[in-house]
Design a protein around this nucleic acid. Structure first.
Lengths: 222, 222
DNA sequence: GTCTCCAAAAATATCGATATTAATTGACAC
DNA sequence: GTGTCAATTAATATCGATATTTTTGGAGAC
């Protein structure tokens, strides 16, 4: 018998994975706010499944640093704070610097094509803030790093990307980005990557992150 | 009622955490060899507990990259390979560089004292290869980074430390370290750290890792 | 009022059983 | 022999119930 999650998500086979994806999205978007107690029974009802998949999904989210497990007192959504945000930014810069250089060092045509395509998808996807755009945006950034042949590093970067985007959602009610052109920044990153100019690509990419950081940081309370 | 794990491990409260620690050690030391299928029922018997704690522990180990989850086919100990080993080395160098510099930038007396103590414990602990020494060795390396105020980074470094030590155990039947003096290297790292000489400390630390890497890498098949 | 302590309630952690899914085996056709 | 398919076996994933632990709330002492 199919349960609700499988019905909604379609392809997904296991209840655990369905819970994982749903809970993750809820935490990332702020539907489950930082610090909130995550009661098994409540989530079990919400996700229309048993306790085991919920617990297992929460365990997995623990390692994504989106959920904290408290001794024998269950789980809660990971808290946020400026120090945490700054650390995410620092780590992203350090890791993506390494990853992008490695990716560029292995640059080849198939990768270039994947990259161009990912960029195109991002441009044609819905406006900023929509789920479509966010997916495409992540795909573009991951495509940049995807040729490094360093799967663990890519995993860390993806993890940090998600942690960072969480702060974007949390600050969604703050002031808009203003005059800054995200599109132009993406274009510059793409251009430098296609020209295999590592120095420029890294500089532009990290500037992109730091600028977003400077914009978001003051909005984070604590 | 107490179960076997609690009885053995003493303090540990939850069955899940007990399973986690035991399974982790077994994978790190090679008692559960790379690639091995990890059958729930078999582990449940071995750990003298139910299926839920075993599954949850395996989920947690998945995020430590010590266990792989295969679609709907259960779990297996993460495979090993030279490429993986080299990536671990690369990431350790990149991350510990950042962490050590940050730690030194915040250097203060309490930290110095913790560091000196950790080094002393390592020297007085049992000979290399014993569990005591290995614990003290990890503590010393973590103490170096512990003043950075970057908890996520420290977590990554600890994770990578464990992944690396796994290769040491796997290569334990290979040739001995030979003439190289690990103790002298540790002393140099400590000295540079206490003098707050970041450049030297980082150089010596990374040399320490790379030397171990050069020694281990050829022994890894595949 | 406020503190301590004990009982009641709620939540977690764990277990054992069932349903589901994958792997295995062997019969049969070619 | 070799490959395919169905029946069997084995393992996983999930459920519902129980035991354990933590939290809550309130009575009584000071």
């Amino acid at each position: 018998m199919m349960n609700a999650v499988q019905h909604i998500e379609g392809k997904e086979s296991s209840a655990t994975h369905g819970c994982y994806l749903t809970l993750r999205k809820m935490i990332l978007t702020g539907a489950l706010p930082p610090g909130q107690k995550l009661k098994i029974e409540q989530l079990r009802g919400l996700l229309n499944t048993g306790t085991s998949p919920v617990r297992e999904a929460l365990s997995l989210l623990t390692s994504d640093m989106l959920v904290e497990r408290i001794d024998q007192r269950g789980f809660r959504a990971a808290p946020v704070g400026r120090a945490n945000f700054e650390e995410i930014l620092l780590l992203r810069c350090a890791l993506e610097d390494t990853a992008l250089r490695a990716s560029l060092a292995n640059a080849d045509q198939p990768w270039e094509e994947r990259l161009v395509l990912a960029h195109h998808h991002m441009k044609t996807a819905g406006k900023k803030g929509t789920a479509d755009f966010e997916d495409a945006h992540k795909s573009f950034h991951m495509a940049l790093l995807s040729n490094a042949g360093l799967p663990m590093l890519e995993r860390y970067c993806a993890q940090l990307y998600d942690l960072n985007i969480r702060y974007r959602y949390l600050a969604a009610d703050g002031p808009r980005y203003g005059e800054r052109s995200i599109e132009a920044e993406h274009q510059s990153i793409l251009d430098a990557a296609l020209e295999r100019d590592a120095e420029t690509a890294v500089r532009v990419l990290l500037d992109h992150y730091r600028r977003t950081g400077e914009y978001l940081s003051p909005q984070i309370k604590n």
